[in-house]
Structures are given as C-alpha cells and as structure tokens.
C-alpha cells in the first residue's frame, strides 16, 4: 500500500504552501516509491520509458506516449495518446485525454480530464473536467 499522507496534507494546505514545499513532497514521494523501472504490467502499444517509471496495476497507455524519468502512475489510470509525463505522480483511477504534457505535477486520484492538449509544470490537478477552462488546478510559481 502506497502512503499518500504527505500528498493529502499538501492538498489540504495547497493555498498556503509554496513551490519549494510542493517540490519537497513531490520529490520525496518519487524517491521513496520510484527507484527503478517497474513497467511489467500495462495495456498499450510500446510506449517509451525513461527510467525510473513505476506503473501500478491495470494501466492503459495510448500511442506514442513518453513516460519518465521519475514517474509514478497508480492503479487503473489511463494516459492519452501522444502524452508526455516526467517528474510526476498520477494517483489511482486517473484518466486524461491526448497530448497532456505534465512535468513536476501531482494528479489527485479519481480525476478525469475529458479533453486534449494540456501542458503544465509544478501543478496539482484534480477532480473532473471536460475542458481546460474548467480544470481544477493549483500551480506553484
């Protein structure tokens, strides 16, 4: 069982924390849970992986996806075509569309983003959204 206590605390205090504090939580989680590749079990057509990448169970990955380095993807998540994710945590049951480019991000569990094209850095993404405009997102500058 993965411990997400620090991420939950971060989420609770997201309006108070700064970029450095966000980065510490992100990096500590990745350091603890993503050391080498764990990519044995996924559904998809040969994406590219830059070590280290951790994939949970029942992950679906679209075409021409690049994951890594330092990526954690929780159980039952779906990554859209042509997406690129690095230095990020995607928790369980997350689904997003094509062309998502996430670097240094945390996506909270059970989030669904039913749209394409989203490029963000140092952000927390959460809840459900059908467009970029409706996305519940907190970015740290």
């Amino acid at each position: 069982m993965i411990d997400i206590t620090e991420i939950e605390k971060l989420l609770k205090n997201k309006e108070k924390v700064n970029k450095i504090e966000f980065n510490i939580v992100l990096k500590n989680f990745l350091r603890k849970n993503v050391q080498k590749n764990n990519i044995n079990d996924y559904i998809g057509d040969f994406p590219s992986f830059i070590e280290p990448v951790f994939l949970g169970k029942n992950i679906k990955i679209g075409n021409d996806v690049l994951l890594g380095p330092n990526v954690y993807i929780g159980d039952n998540s779906e990554i859209g075509d042509y997406s690129e994710i690095s230095n990020s945590i995607i928790l369980d049951n997350v689904k997003f569309g094509r062309l998502f480019k996430l670097n240094n991000c945390i996506v909270i569990g059970n989030s669904q983003f039913n749209f394409n094209n989203c490029s963000v850095e140092y952000c927390i993404l959460m809840d459900n959204a059908n467009s970029r405009e409706n996305l519940n997102i907190k970015c740290f500058k």
Partner: peptide
C-alpha cells in the same frame, strides 16, 4: 545505469538524453 525503453523507436535521440541529464 539508467535504462531507456524506446518502445517503437529505433534509436535514442538528444531529447531523451537531455531528460536524463537534467534530472
């Protein structure tokens, strides 16, 4: 060591290496 799995690509490119070097 660091492993890159290219999936369907038949060569490494500088972008992949930059991703590693910067991290």
């Amino acid at each position: 060591t660091i492993q890159i799995n290219t999936g369907r690509e038949c060569a490494l490119n500088a972008y992949y290496i930059e991703k590693i070097i910067k991290n």
